[in-house]
Amino acid sequence: MADELNSTIKDLEELKHQTLACENCHLRAGCRGVVFGEGSPLSPIMFIGEGPGQTEDELGRPFVGKAGQLLDRILEAADLPRNTIYITNIVKCRPSNNRTPTQEEMKFCLPWLREQYRILRPHFMVLLGLAATHGILAPDLKMNQVHGQWFERGKVRMMPTYHPAAILRNPNLKRPAWEDFQEISRAVKAFEQESETLEI
């Protein structure tokens, strides 16, 4: 396990070094820096948002503004504390005025996300908001129709759910989002219990 962790961390640090130097699209010129991602490198679950906001751009960390603070509270309540998950965004640079990234911008950044996946090999992905859902699953999906559902892609189970910023704008989304997170928590706990049984 220690060798696996050391290898994962080394590969992730090398990828981060490469990503921080990225200037593949125009977004890099309009932000302070690249926001790579953070969290437990051996977590079975990866959360993916749309892109850094102003606070994230300033601090170089994902989900640390108001939406991130709400996400932290939801994660704690769902027994998935932030230090046990991995979290990143589909685009690593802040779009101007915190706008939603375009499909083209997401395509430029997807290779970095794919490399994060290759290194981390999560069993679950949670797609926070429509941008991540459109960029990874399909561009015509509607959140009110697909949230809370698992989609199988290879060996990964993916679930779209509401972005915490959307919940801040519309408190009526709190209940459906919370139900989604309860299902996510159940799935992760079941996976962890099964993994422990197999190790025994």
Results as ranks from 00 to 15, higher is better:
Glu13Ala: 06
Leu15Met: 10
His17Leu: 12
Ala21Tyr: 14
Cys22Gln: 09
Cys22Asn: 08
Asn24Thr: 15
Asn24Pro: 03
Arg28Thr: 12
Cys31Ser: 07
Cys31Gly: 05
Val34Ser: 06
Val34Gln: 12
Val35Thr: 02
Glu38Arg: 12
Pro41Trp: 11
Pro41Ile: 14
Leu42Ile: 04
Leu42Lys: 08
Leu42Asn: 02
Pro44Trp: 07
Ile45Met: 02
Gly51Tyr: 00
Pro52Met: 11
Gln54Pro: 09
Thr55Asn: 04
Thr55Cys: 08
Glu58Met: 13
Pro62Met: 05
Val64Phe: 10
Val64Arg: 02
Ala67Lys: 04
Gly68Cys: 15
Leu70Asn: 08
Leu71Trp: 07
Asp72Glu: 14
Arg73Thr: 14
Leu75Tyr: 08
Glu76Asn: 04
Ala77Asn: 14
Leu80Val: 06
Pro81Cys: 09
Pro81Arg: 12
Arg82Gly: 03
Asn83Cys: 03
Thr84Lys: 15
Tyr86Asp: 01
Thr88Tyr: 04
Thr88Met: 04
Asn89Gln: 08
Pro95Met: 04
Pro95Thr: 04
Asn97Asp: 05
Asn97Gln: 02
Asn98Lys: 13
Thr100Ile: 09
Glu105Met: 11
Met106Ser: 11
Lys107Thr: 00
Lys107Ser: 02
Pro111Met: 14
Trp112Ser: 01
Trp112Lys: 06
Trp112Phe: 12
Trp112Asp: 00
Arg114Trp: 15
Glu115Gly: 04
Glu115Val: 10
Arg118Ser: 15
Ile119Lys: 09
Ile119Asn: 11
